[in-house]
Amino acid sequence: MEMNTRWTANGRVLMHVTFWLCIVVFLTTLFEVEGPGFKAAFNTVMMLLPVHVVYFYTLSYVIIPKYLYTRKFLQLTLCFVLLAVGCVLMYRIIEILFADPYFFKEMRKLNPDWKWQKIKGTFLEQLTNMEYLIHGLEQSNSVVWIALVIKFFRMWYERKQVALQAELNFLKSQIHPHFLFNTLNNLYALTLNQSPKSPEVVLGLSDILRYMLYECNADYVSLKRDVVIIQNYLTLEQLRYGDRLDLNFSIKGTIADQRVSPLLMIPLIENAFKHGASEITEEAWINIDLDVDAYQLKLKVSNSKPSQPIERDAACGNIGLQNLKKRLELMYPETHRLTIYDEEDMYLAILQINFGTVPYLATTTEREASFDSGHMATIFSKTKTSRSWK
Rank of each mutant, 00 (worst) to 15 (best):
N303R: 07
S302W: 10
L268A: 07
S302I: 13
L236M: 13
D246M: 08
I286T: 02
K252G: 09
I286R: 00
E279V: 12
C316M: 15
L299K: 02
L297N: 05
C216I: 08
P309G: 05
I269F: 01
G276Q: 02
L236Y: 02
G253L: 03
L264K: 03
A315E: 14
D246R: 05
E282T: 13
I251P: 00
Q238H: 13
Y241A: 03
D226K: 00
N217A: 14
L234P: 00
A314D: 12
K325T: 12
M265I: 08
I319T: 11
I286D: 01
E215G: 07
N217E: 15
G317H: 08
D257I: 07
T254F: 08
S206K: 08
D246Q: 12
I208F: 04
R225S: 10
E283P: 09
F249R: 00
N287K: 09
Q308W: 13
D243E: 13
K325R: 11
A294Y: 15
L264S: 03
Q308A: 15
L321P: 07
A277Y: 02
A272M: 03
I255T: 05
V301K: 00
I251D: 01
N318I: 10
E215V: 08
L324Y: 03
Q231G: 07
K300L: 12
I310Q: 15
I251G: 00
S250R: 09
I288M: 01
S278N: 11
A294H: 12
L263Y: 05
V228H: 14
R225T: 12
